[in-house]
Amino acid sequence: MSPDPTRPSLLLRVRDSADHDAWREFDATYRDLVLGYCRRRGLQPADAEDVLQVVLISLSRAMRRWEYRRERGRFRAYLGCVVRNAVNRHQARGRPADVQLETSVRAVLSDPTGPRADELWEREWVRHHYRRAMETIRETFSERSVRVFERLLEGARVARVAIEFETTETAIHQVKRRIKQRMGALIAEQVAAEEPGDVSLRR
């Protein structure tokens, strides 16, 4: 499967804040990343949605000035920065004084270059790509293969899964290997597509 040819232009189109389709797509792609990050930062679902809105608005402003550079990780870092700041502002808002104090101490320790928020963002970003790759796997692999893989994800031993699916351990291993391989390729493509300049380099 080749990378979606529309992807590189997605971010280019986002630059036009009037382009609602582009926003919708952007929202669909990154929504779970931003929400996931917010939840892991301890925000309740409703608060996380608020933050997502804030992020989208500030992105739409920033994107007008946003010029792509052919450097890897620029967008991921930029988006992470915007989201982190939004979460920090949200957490500092309308809290009792002691909580605010705690938050500000933590903000000094962890933001904007803080290791923990940074690391959390990076991890959420990894999850986000796994999730998207897994979605594609579900759509493109046979149902049986997906179910085998899911059983393995649940922690079942290969021998056990082989019995359940009335096949050999070797066959189970093969399924796992194929999916892993495909997942690797998908994620590589997704990451490359995030940075439009990189796509051509990787061909």
Partner: peptide, 17 residues
Amino acid sequence: MSPSDGDPRPPDRFGFD
């Protein structure tokens, strides 16, 4: 399905190794 040399590889932090 076998990987070809030209296949892009995911960044290390994804832990495929």
